[in-house]
Design a protein around this nucleic acid. Structure first.
Lengths: 170, 170
DNA sequence: ATTTCAGGCTAACACTGTTAGCAAGGGAGA
DNA sequence: TCTCCCTTGCTAACAGTGTTAGCCTGAAAT
C-alpha cells in the first residue's frame, strides 16, 4: 500500500457528497472523486462496485436529511411546505440526485423511502392519493424553479402561497 | 460528395425525433444519429453547430406538439389536465427533453415558451402565480410518474382526481 | 475549363465508466 | 522470524461520449 491511511468507505461517501455539493451531478465523476481522495479512479472499485453505489449512497443521504428537515419544521402544513422548498433550494444538487434521477431502490436501506412517503401522508392528513398530489405539487414547484423554467420576474413566494392555499382547501 | 441526397437539416431534425422516441434521451447520441442518416458523426457538424442545437430543436417540437394537444382537448380544466397527463405519458422522452432538461431559451423560436405559458394561464383563469402552481402540480405528477417514484400499486387515476379537485377549489 | 465550395471522410483529443493484470506492503499463521 | 495471502494501490486499456482538424471529391458556377 502506498498510502498508510487509504480512503475508507465512509470517507468516499463524504467526499462524494462534498463533490456533489460543489460541482453538481455532472461534476460527480469517478476520476474527480478519486482525485479528491488522492487515488486513481480504478482504485475506487476496490471499495465500491460501481458508480451507482455512490449515487445510491447520496440518494439515501438525501432522503435522510430531507426527512429530518421536514420533521424539524413547524407542525402546520404551511410550515412543512415552506420547509420542503427551503431544503430543496438549499440543497439543489442533493435534491436533484435524490428525486430527479431514478431512485436505486434495491441499493438504499429498506424503509427509507417509505418513511418519507408516510411522513408526507401524515402531514396532509388525508388519503394516499391526496398526499401524492400534494407531494407532486411541491416537487413540481421545486423542480421547475431549480430548472429555471419560471421567468426571472415570476413571484415565486406568491406562487407558493397559492399552492399552499390549494393544499389547505381540497 | 459520396451520397447524392445528403441529409437536409429537416431530415436531421426528423431522424433525431425518431431516435429520441425509440431510444430515449440517453440513446440520442451524435454517432447513433449519424448512423441513421448513413453518414459519420463528424459530418453532422456540417449541418449543425453542436448537439445542443438538436436538443433545442426537439424542445421546440415538444413545446409545439404539447401546445396543440392541450388546445385540442376539451375546454374544462379537468379535460385539459387529463390531456396534459395523456400527452406527457404518451411522449415521455419528448416530455423529458422538453421539460426535465434545462430549456435552451436562446435557441428555440422566440415566443414558443411564452405561448404555452399563456395558454396555461388562460386555462386556469386566474393570476400568474396560480397558473404556475397548477402547472407545477401537473408537472410534478407527470415527472414523478415517469420517474417511477410512485409505488406500483398507487392509484394514480385517483391521485389525478384529487389534484384536479385541488385546482378547482383554490 | 477552371475554380469554388458543400459535404462527405478519417484521425484524433479529452472526457466518461469500467476491467484486467501487476506490485507492494501489512497482518496472520507456522 | 519467515512465509504466504490479501488488501489496496497502480498503469494500460476498451468502449463509449461530444467535438475539432484536415483532407478529398464531385457538383455547380463563372
Amino acid at each position: 500500500m502506498a498510502n498508510t491511511d487509504g480512503p475508507t468507505r465512509e470517507r468516499i461517501s463524504i467526499t462524494a457528497y462534498e463533490l456533489l455539493k460543489e460541482k453538481g451531478v455532472s461534476g460527480l465523476s469517478m476520476r474527480a472523486l478519486a482525485d479528491r481522495l488522492h487515488i486513481k479512479a480504478p482504485s475506487l472499485y476496490k471499495h465500491v462496485a460501481d458508480k451507482d453505489e455512490i449515487i445510491a449512497d447520496l440518494q439515501a443521504r438525501g432522503l435522510r436529511e430531507f426527512g429530518e428537515a421536514i420533521k424539524k419544521a413547524g407542525k402546520s402544513r404551511k410550515a412543512k411546505a415552506l420547509a420542503y422548498r427551503k431544503w430543496a433550494l438549499g440543497n439543489p444538487h442533493l435534491y436533484e440526485i435524490t428525486v430527479s434521477i431514478p431512485l436505486l431502490r434495491d441499493r438504499i436501506p429498506p424503509g427509507l423511502e417509505d418513511g418519507v412517503t408516510k411522513m408526507i401522508i401524515e402531514i396532509t392528513g388525508k388519503d394516499h392519493a391526496h398526499a401524492r398530489a400534494v407531494w407532486a405539487l411541491m416537487h413540481g414547484l421545486v423542480d421547475l424553479e431549480i430548472a429555471g423554467r419560471f421567468p426571472k420576474d415570476a413571484d415565486l413566494d406568491l406562487t407558493w402561497k397559492r399552492a399552499i392555499a390549494m393544499i389547505g382547501k381540497a
